[in-house]
Design a protein around this nucleic acid. Structure first.
Lengths: 208, 208
DNA sequence: CTATTTACAGACAGTGGTGTATGTAACTAG
DNA sequence: CTAGTTACATACACCACTGTCTGTAAATAG
């Protein structure tokens, strides 16, 4: 029996939800479309109707949320008023806290970091991810290279190194926290850690 | 025709080499034992003779090298003379540089980070890895908590937060660099980045 | 020199997955 | 009201992979 458009959209969502759960539990490669269909209460026919194949399904799953690196890049390009470094600091903290408050983002980012193999099948998703990271680093570097900011860098620290350091710390924090959420509390511990990083990069770093 | 013991060991190595290359290229889950055997110039019979299954093969592949986190934990527990923080700094730098000079370690760490899905099949390897990370963080925390060190921490920075910050930076650096080796040069850029981190964690940080 | 074990190769059965093709009932456009 | 389309379910053909079993020649032990 054919469904109405709403119902169809509903099964599409159910398939995405099932895929998210199964990818997280068993990994992308070890999850078959049959598994996903069963878990969503449909058959593979429905899955193939809504999605071309597993790679496309994966891609649309990722499209549901803006990941932290993407958020950062987007928002950084927006606000340029105030102290650029303070703005950057707050965006970094906010991105991590935001992830900590959004379970779906946690799941999807966990899938990206620990439940999928970046091979040619998922190359598109990988490239997209890499592009956003490059964009983020470039924007960071740009912030550190502003005329009013650059002289504030510690001796021996270039804008590009500062940007790479900051990005590494953020990625490492996300990586560690998603692996073991008991390692630290994102809401209370993120700010001191990010501040420590800035303190090491910039001479006159202090906060209220 | 049966081989001598040396020859057998040789084919065992050939299988490991083939597995390493194929895991890196196509991911662990997408590499079959048939692929590995063919690539090594033998049949699956040989693979099953030397290894119980793919998970065990994977595990023995990892056993070939000490990964950076493991190295750190091992060496940190050894040397306790001198300034503990300087020793810690040098070990961190050395671990990253060491990875940069060892292509096999690069491949295996890349496989761990981006070419395998940590699901129940590989749970053993995952647990081992997690155990070493926990050990490293604990040792770092211990270093930062030494009576002569703890007062040197920046205000608002606890030993455990410092340890987690340092580990996140290292993991992030490795992750970023393995994803894109052009991001920075490990041999020249590692020290400034690690120093920046220490500078943000410790009050009186300066180097020669 | 014989018996036994080793180090594989090759074959087999079984499972599970993919992509596609077809069927079909119900929605929807005109 | 009826064509056409949509949203699937079902069936089919085909391949890939796994694990195991057997065969076997050569190394090795005694």
């Amino acid at each position: 029996m054919r469904r109405t458009k709403e119902q169809a959209e509903q099964t599409r969502c159910a398939i995405l939800v099932a895929a998210e759960a199964l990818f997280l539990e068993k990994g992308v490669a070890h999850t078959s479309l049959e598994h996903i269909a069963r878990h969503a209460g449909v058959t593979r026919g429905a899955v193939y109707w809504h999605f071309e194949n597993k790679a496309h399904l994966f891609h649309e799953l990722l499209s549901q949320v803006r990941l932290p690196p993407e958020q950062l890049a987007e928002r950084l390009s927006a606000c340029a008023e105030r102290d650029p470094l303070l703005a950057l600091r707050e965006l970094c903290i906010e991105a991590i806290e935001n992830l900590a408050c959004n379970p779906q983002k946690q799941r999807i980012f966990t899938i990206l970091l620990r439940r999928c193999e970046f091979t040619d099948e998922l190359r598109e998703a990988e490239l997209r991810h890499a592009a956003f990271i490059a964009q983020f680093i470039a924007l960071c570097e740009q912030q550190f290279d502003l005329p009013g900011v650059r002289p504030r860098l510690q001796p021996g620290m270039s804008p590009r190194l500062a940007a790479r350091t900051l990005h590494a710390l953020i990625i490492g924090l996300l990586h560690d926290w998603l692996r073991d959420p008991t390692l630290f509390d994102p809401l209370s511990d993120t700010a001191p850690m990010i501040d420590a990083c800035f303190r090491g990069l910039v001479r006159d770093w202090q906060q209220a």
